[in-house]
Design a protein around this nucleic acid. Structure first.
Lengths: 209, 209
DNA sequence: CGCTGCACTGAACTATTGTTCAGTCTCAAC
DNA sequence: GTTGAGACTGAACAATAGTTCAGTGCAGCG
């Protein structure tokens, strides 16, 4: 309680969260045993329940750890109300990805599993991302950047599918193309393709059919 | 071996596959026990290993059962080389969905898991879907229906993301909107929004900025 | 020095789960 | 009627996993 408490960050707890994060991302929650995690962290099995009460408690801690990383991506984006065009909000996302380049594969893997499991917090991430994209679309609309016949309900979802789909289906793209869509040049091409599609679609200029 | 063998379709085996299909879709392979499946099917636990050798054997049988249903969707689509526009191929998909309306939620759930679990056959479905969409795009291109600056590599993937994203993220859409995106009116709206986006994008007519 | 609190250990415990197998029942074939 | 094959049963088995808990070591404190 006094200020300079000497043991404020139990080393075991910290290691457990980080190692569990990697293992959960790699193999999935059910397929990882507490003994795996303890071994990878170099601690004993008992420590997990000592700190987290149960394996599920550890999962919650890992989820919080993961969300904390996303936090600045979402709130950081919301802190840019001047972002009105798709370019703007895509740039914010790209910036965040660039900052997390090192552990990007692990983040993608964990996120995939979170979506699969339909956990509450997975939904909360989805929901906040939706709020971000949707308000972005509303601003575009207010600025007269949206054609009148565009569906205001579905457009945000479709934009999210393009963004999240890139993430979720990247393992398959990798197997089709032989390389990840997140490799720099491919990613930049995807970026342009996304912009083009959102703005002008795929039909040639002369009156779309 | 003679022609009219009386017990050609063991009732137990059949029920096990169908019930396991539903349970796997609902809760995921790992979360379903052989006892769950046996109880739901009204048979004994031993029967599973009698017919399938192991729980994994049952999974393979369920996968085959599932793929068999998709087979006609893919090959049926490939059997329509006259389909050139996005409308055409969307119509084929819609037709298939309509034919499977009854067990559509289960199919979506199972497919979701297959894609997110990165199973080999999940990839093969992705790959074939890619082949279908990609050749469809190539035909559009040949027919002069593609703007010159559209990225030929990414467009098929982006189109797939819109299609598969609707499927994979539907549970979340359901929680945001309170209804599934596959309910008829929403689905039709999404269909139009998809078409509009693919063809003309979201910008107003007067030269998209 | 003794006390207290806390991180940490690891053997033991318990529940669950996939698998096995000896045996039953049914039905077609001879 | 006997036989054989295959569907089917369910108690028993063995492995695995999450959890418990008595105990250790150490750091701060009076």
């Amino acid at each position: 309680m006094t200020q300079a408490t000497p043991r404020e960050a139990p080393v075991g707890r910290d290691r457990l969260v980080r190692e569990a994060f990697v293992l959960f991302a790699e193999k999935g929650f059910d397929s990882v045993t507490v003994r795996d995690i303890a071994a990878a962290s170099g601690v004993s099995v008992g420590l997990i329940n000592h700190h987290f009460g149960s394996k599920d408690g550890l999962r919650e801690a890992v989820d919080e750890f993961f969300i904390a990383q996303f936090e600045d991506a979402i709130t950081g984006a919301a802190a840019h109300p001047e972002a009105t065009t798709p370019e703007d909000h895509a740039k914010i996302i790209d910036g965040w990805i660039a900052r997390h380049e090192k552990d990007w594969p692990t983040i993608v893997a964990y996120f995939r599993r979170a979506l699969l499991e339909e956990s509450d917090w997975g939904f909360s991430v989805f929901q906040r991302f939706y709020g971000f994209v949707q308000s972005s679309v509303m601003r575009m609309d207010a600025a007269g950047q949206l054609a009148p016949d565009v569906d205001r309900l579905w457009l945000p979802f479709l934009m999210m599918y393009l963004e999240l789909g890139t993430m979720v289906f990247d393992p398959y793209v990798k197997r089709v193309l032989g390389r990840s869509g997140y490799e720099r040049d491919l990613w930049q091409r995807r970026h342009r393709a996304y912009m083009t599609l959102i703005r002008r679609g795929s039909s040639p200029k002369r009156a779309g059919l």
